[in-house]
Design a binder for these strands. Sequence first.
DNA 1: CGAAGATACATACCGTCGGTATGTTCGTGT
DNA 2: ACACGAACATACCGACGGTATGTATCTTCG
Lengths: 200, 200
Amino acid sequence: MESRQRSTRTKAQQREQTIRTLVGEARSLFATRGYAHVSLADIVQAAGVTKGALYHHFTGKEDVFRAVLEQVHQEVGERIAASAPTSDAWTQLLSGCRTFLTASTEPNIQQIMLIDAPSVLGWGVWRELDATTSMQHLQEALQVLIDDGTIPDQPVLPVVHLLSGAMNEAALWLARSANREHDLAHTMTALERMLESLRR
Amino acid sequence: MESRQRSTRTKAQQREQTIRTLVGEARSLFATRGYAHVSLADIVQAAGVTKGALYHHFTGKEDVFRAVLEQVHQEVGERIAASAPTSDAWTQLLSGCRTFLTASTEPNIQQIMLIDAPSVLGWGVWRELDATTSMQHLQEALQVLIDDGTIPDQPVLPVVHLLSGAMNEAALWLARSANREHDLAHTMTALERMLESLRR
DNA sequence: CGAAGATACATACCGTCGGTATGTTCGTGT
DNA sequence: ACACGAACATACCGACGGTATGTATCTTCG
């Protein structure tokens, strides 16, 4: 039975809305100032609620950060997945890498995903989350290339970690580059050469 | 004229000793618990001094961490420099990479240098420090190989950042590996292949 | 040699922050 | 209609980073 809505928002809507703005404001604050320099007071003030509301939905500051990080990871993953929908596996891998580099260069993604996350949540948790999104894409793409014989059979995990770390660091560097487009081009050619080395 | 030493320790010796133990204890605490979960009270208690002493030599908690990080960086740099004293540039690069991977796998180096440092000091400061030690070696080695024609002329910075990031992440992964020696071997072969790709 | 100043610490205290316990409102199932 | 629980708000606590100030010890120089 449907309940009439005496008020404009139902409880569930209210909950969702509060969490959304909370995570959203927290994300922008974390991105610009860094996790350590953001207080819970800042977050709840920006979201227009109180600490009690925050602690009703999250277990603490770290939990808010985890929610933010999950959102960021999901966003990056979607952008990678949508980068080259219809192509062969090889060019799909390349465009995926390029998309990751450009996405991870944006400051509001970078500070959260690449700088603070390992320190705040610990490397293990960070890698777990990453393994379900961007790293997942990389690993799958490589496995496909191994299965269809494009690159010889070899342990994928070492390669995945090497490439993932390479792109993470490259993204951090590119974000501070004075000539980003120029450096991105050189980085991509160098990265392509590294990927080619797997081929042969 | 030398001043006679009425006491067992002169002031300069005392200062040096205090700083040494302070940094040493802080390092071990930071390494095991991570920066955020170490209080100044923990550090000064372990070092056997008070907060006043700490604040006499350092500007704050962050400054202590910076001193610790500099020590770690210097240590890693020395180990890399001593890894392959008399060889051609190419094998020198390879053994340098191997040394970095094994050194950075140790937990008391890893937590400080690879996990906390970017978040605590900011990526810029972290990279500055790195650029004077481990990254410095990598860049110089590559430049030598370019100058003697082993690898073709190309922008070094993109390659340096890609390789540096790759090894950082690989070290973090190897540290949690169930079969470290085995994975290290595969990582090195994959890394060698990537380096080979620069050659030709 | 000894007073003056600098250096190396110790003690006491403050503001802020993360976290918790409790109170209040209000939608919702029965 | 009403009771219950979810969604908040309010008030408060302990701990931590940081600072101000006091004190003992070494060094310097007339």
